[in-house]
């Protein structure tokens, strides 16, 4: 089974050299730490920055320089700043190659829900609806089951949707799964020490298992 860092590490393997990537809040943010050395990857932060650098050294924080999670960050040589309309313009125009974000639920046809629990929690969608509606490639990083032990990979989402038929791949503490165009979660890899049966039990939506499922290399 993977911890959060493990999920981030596995997702980092999905990033191609020379790509522009938007990382959501939570586990996706950790992915930045595992991008292979020597790769030229530009991180987009939707509040208006391309070329997001690491956190600043203590004492060098700049209140004017934050990421979409409102964390203090730095720029890098070659970074560019722009306004919010241009930021979503480049997202809508599919200039950003890959979006990695968290989710509360994903359905077997690729629908995603991650912004609202009616009557309980209302934080808002932020930029997630724009990202999932336009991104060429969307990978979800999340736990396979919720705190109540219920599967988050469902036949259909029960929570208000963020986007429809958009998720391409999911990485959880148990497995890597791709969402097939015709519907269904195709099991690609098992996390170290996790059996196919464990994944079956934790997946409520249609799970497609073909042949031997390899254990992932992290």
């Amino acid at each position: 089974m993977l911890d959060k860092e493990g999920i981030a590490k596995r997702i980092a393997k999905e990033i191609n050299d020379g790509s522009y990537v938007n990382l959501g809040i939570g586990i996706p943010t950790l992915v930045a730490n595992y991008i292979p050395a020597g790769f030229n990857v530009v991180l987009q932060s939707e509040n208006g920055l391309l070329g997001m650098g690491p956190f600043p050294y203590d004492g060098e924080e700049d209140a004017d320089l934050i990421n979409a999670g409102k964390q203090t960050i730095t720029t890098l040589p070659g970074s560019a700043v722009f306004d919010s309309a241009m930021s979503f313009g480049m997202i809508r125009a599919q200039k950003v190659d890959l979006t990695i974000l968290g989710a509360m639920e994903v359905s077997e046809n690729g629908d995603i829900a991650n912004w609202k629990i009616p009557g309980k929690m209302v934080k808002g969608m932020g930029g997630a609806m724009d990202l999932v509606a336009s991104a060429k490639n969307i990978i979800v990083a999340m736990q396979h089951v919720n705190k109540a032990g219920e599967s988050k990979l469902l036949p259909a989402c029960s929570l208000p949707l963020t986007g429809v038929r958009c998720v391409k791949k999911i990485v959880t503490e148990l497995a890597v799964l791709s969402v097939l165009p015709e519907g269904g979660f195709k099991l690609e890899e098992r996390a170290p020490g996790v059996s196919v049966d464990q994944i079956k039990q934790a997946t409520a939506g249609k799970l497609i298992i073909e042949g031997e499922i390899p254990e992932m290399v992290v």
């Binding site: 306004d83 919010s84 930021s87 809508r92 930029g127 609806m129 724009d130 509606a133 208000p160 949707l161």
Partner: peptide, 29 residues
Amino acid sequence: LIPQGTLATRCLAAGYGMPAIYTPAGVGT
């Protein structure tokens, strides 16, 4: 609550003298 890109682009439209915009954000939600 509206998508962030929709929020931004509705500002842009006002400043550019355009009455409306089309966006895929929120389709099916």
